[in-house]
Every structure is written in structure tokens, then in C-alpha cells.
Design a binder for these strands. Structure first.
Lengths: 138, 138
DNA sequence: TTTCATGCAAATTCTTTGCAAGTTA
DNA sequence: TAACTTGCAAAGAATTTGCATGAAA
């Protein structure tokens, strides 16, 4: 819902504002990858007058808590944002129709293990993006 | 060397120019991930007067032949470029010291197989980036 | 010579920031 | 009320583009 973000904010001494709540809500509703512009436009449907700069500021703040994540998919020049789901997943992008799918699997786990055991590297994030042709566009 | 890029250009009806050769050379010498600005500065050491815009244009052209590849590593805002090595590899970025390592492994192959068999997805590129702490910065 | 590529500067796009005014605790 | 956030506009950074000149075929 909306309770968790309020809590998360308060817990770290930040204020719970209309703008921040609306940004969070929009991310939850979308459950996908949105550019800041797309996000801002959805935010304004619920909370008119929210400025794009505030969306950026909210996202920056949330990302400090690891609640959201930015990724650059395909050859897009704008960053895209999504909720930082706790389950590891990777992105599959069709270069024809632009659709982005999430795939959950143990591949990400494997990478983490591989690096920890062999190379002394402490993995924080794994970003795996696959581009190609989806079934429909093949 | 420098022969392959000349050939690749001619084969597609593009001209072999000083700027393009210098960009290619710089990418070969670096064998790493360079921002356009870094690349431009190295290019000018061999070929003074080459404009940054031309570096962008060369990279765009090369990427149409799949000879180079752009990747956004870490939370960097600028794109980084490298030669598109035929061998599959992934990037390991230390968020402390910023160092970027290449790891060659069969993980990328696994992803490709997984998607082809189960989901009818024809993979074109796999981009796998891991961020965390390297051994020295742990 | 004819066509393509470059340099330069201006234009775009994405993102960040300064500051006065509005909100939250 | 006091401190934090926002909106707005301007500033920045990265990348692209128009166009006249210069270089390659």
C-alpha cells in the first residue's frame, strides 16, 4: 500500500509528503519500468501540480533506501525506474516492439556465488539485461 | 590493427577517414571502457583537431556494424564504450574504487540457452553488470 | 569533381540545483 | 514555529544536428 513508504520515510527522519506518496503509488501501480517523464505524468493524475524535479528528488531519496532502482535498458537514453523487488530477476527487452519482461530465475544467484567464491568480490547488485526478438516479433 | 576497420568501412560504402581510424585505434589501445570524452582526448593525441561530435558519429557508425558497444556502468551518467569482443563476458564494477573488470564465463551462454529453449526469445545481446566491493576495497 | 565526413556552434534531451514560498511535524 | 520540501526557472551535462568547408573516392 502506502503505509510502508510512510514508515520508511519517518524511520529515517524524512517527511511524508503528498509528492512522495504519489510517486510511490505510481511506481506500485505501474509495476514496470517507467521513465521519469512517464512517472511524472501518472503522478499528476492523482496529485496535480507535482513537478518533475520533485519526482527526481523522490526517486533519489527512495534509491538511498534501496526501495527503487534505476536501469538503462536497450539503447534508450533516459533512465527507467522500478520498485526494487526483493526477488532477483533480470530484464528481457525486445528490440522490435520495445516490450520489457521480467524473468525470475536462479541465474542471478549463480553469478553472486561465482564471484564470492572465486574472486573475493562482495556483490551488491546484479543487473542482467537481455535484448533480442520476442516470440511475436521473431 | 587498423586494416579491419578500413575494410569494414569500405565494405559498406563508408569512407576511411583520419577521424574514424583514430577512434578505432584509441578503442583498441584502451581495451577498456571509455567515456566519449576520454576517448576524444586520446584520439586527439594522435590526431589533433578531431571534434567530440565526430567521435560520437564514429561510435554510432561502428555500433551499426556491431563493432563497438555502449554500456552504462554503475551510477555513472555518461555512456562508456568498448570494442565488441566476440567472446561473451560480463562487467564487474567496484562501487568504491570504480574499477571495472571483465569476466569471461559461461554464464552468458546459460542465459542465452535458457531463453531460447523455454521462451522462444531470440537473444541478440546479453548485458550483465555486477556492482559491489572488490577484494581491495572490501 | 562529386559525394561524403568533419568541425564548429547551436539545439536537444535528461537531470540537478538555487531560492522563495508552501508544508509537515 | 522551525525545519524540511516543493515548484519554478535557470544551470549543467551528455548527445545530436545544421551547415559551410574540407577530405576521400
Amino acid at each position: 500500500m502506502n503505509a510502508d513508504i510512510a514508515e520508511a520515510l519517518r524511520a529515517r527522519g524524512h517527511r511524508v509528503t503528498r509528492a512522495r506518496r504519489a510517486v510511490w503509488q505510481a511506481l506500485e501501480d505501474a509495476a514496470g519500468h517507467l521513465t521519469v517523464e512517464q512517472l511524472a505524468s501518472r503522478v499528476r493524475q492523482h496529485e496535480p501540480g507535482v513537478n518533475t524535479a520533485s519526482v527526481y528528488r523522490s526517486l533519489t531519496l527512495f534509491s538511498e533506501f534501496d526501495l527503487v532502482r534505476e536501469s538503462r535498458l536497450g539503447d534508450d537514453e533516459a533512465g527507467r525506474w522500478e520498485l526494487a523487488h526483493p526477488d532477483e530477476h533480470f530484464h528481457v527487452v525486445c528490440e522490435q516492439c520495445g516490450e520489457v519482461d521480467h524473468h525470475v530465475g536462479d541465474l542471478v544467484e549463480q553469478v553472486r556465488d561465482h564471484l564470492a567464491n572465486g574472486h573475493g568480490f562482495r556483490t551488491v547488485t546484479v543487473e542482467l539485461t537481455v535484448t533480442g526478438r520476442c516470440e511475436r516479433c521473431a
